[in-house]
Design a binder for these strands. Structure first.
Lengths: 144, 144
DNA sequence: ATATAAGTTAAAGAATACTTTAAGTCAATA
DNA sequence: TATTGACTTAAAGTATTCTTTAACTTATAT
């Protein structure tokens, strides 16, 4: 069973032009063509595209993804390299999550700040608060 | 105590050109100038820049940040709007973290896959594995 | 057989976030 | 006072990731 670029795009919820772009950039060397030159996506190709989507969504640039795909084409001699790429990306993602959690704390503090300002009717009122009025977890954001 | 653009950039670990760009885009209306036209960053301006960095790192575009900054300039009449922006961004970040965690699982599966391939000396060997050989948490990534 | 929808390519365009360049000014030190 | 390093601006350049356009072809449905 095969899918055209439009069908595959719909299933993956991306634009057909995006899939053509990935192909042009060398990310889809495994996608075969019909006699007339039309791309024929197999079920397994969609799995590859899901991995590509995962790597993309976790910040890997197209060129990095291309390197990984090229490794899989080369075969078993690149197992170490592929593992290395994935381990690095894993650490990368762990750090991104940590970073986002830290940023979330700051945003939470600001939400608390404006909720408090909302009740008081002004932001000026907050500067008057004593340290005791600030929840413990937000104290680290206070400037002296 | 004031800092020049170069000093502020060093403290925030960004390029001076980035700070000038933010200024040009209207993100730093609070930064004052010397008689000669040189930017004078106050301690409090650096706090603002940390918030800008937080919003940027969590995916808010320059224009969105500009909107928030403009609200703070307008004053107390925009407390609701600012709170709305921050709450939306908060939800945004929560979703990003969830997404990254989901992607991390897929990467973890792939790491397991290539570690197993590494031991076997080939990826072909993995396709021969029975479902029992695949850790429970990775089974959802198996294609039938 | 023919019309039509969707496919193809190359090339140009768009959006975002900066960086670099060029020409000139400011401010601190010798 | 003169030099020097860092500042200023406007404008152009860069990188990335697609999208759009134009001209043409393929494949399907009547």
């Amino acid at each position: 069973m095969f899918y055209t670029v439009g069908e595959a795009a719909k299933m993956l919820k991306v634009a057909p032009s995006a899939l053509r772009y990935y192909d042009k950039e060398g990310l889809l060397p495994f996608v075969e063509r019909s006699g007339g030159g039309i791309r024929m996506f197999k079920e397994n190709d969609l799995e590859w595209l899901k991995l590509i989507g995962c790597l993309k969504a976790t910040g890997m640039p197209i060129k990095g993804i291309k390197q990984f795909i090229e490794c899989t084409i080369k075969g078993d001699e690149t197992i170490d390299e592929r593992l290395g790429i994935l381990k690095a990306q894993r650490e990368n993602v762990v750090k991104q999550i940590e970073q986002l959690k830290a940023h979330l704390e700051m945003i939470d503090y600001k939400v608390w700040y404006y909720q408090t300002a909302q009740r008081a009717g002004s932001t000026a009122a907050i500067e008057q608060l004593s340290a005791d009025d600030v929840p413990e977890k937000y104290k680290k954001f206070l400037k002296k």
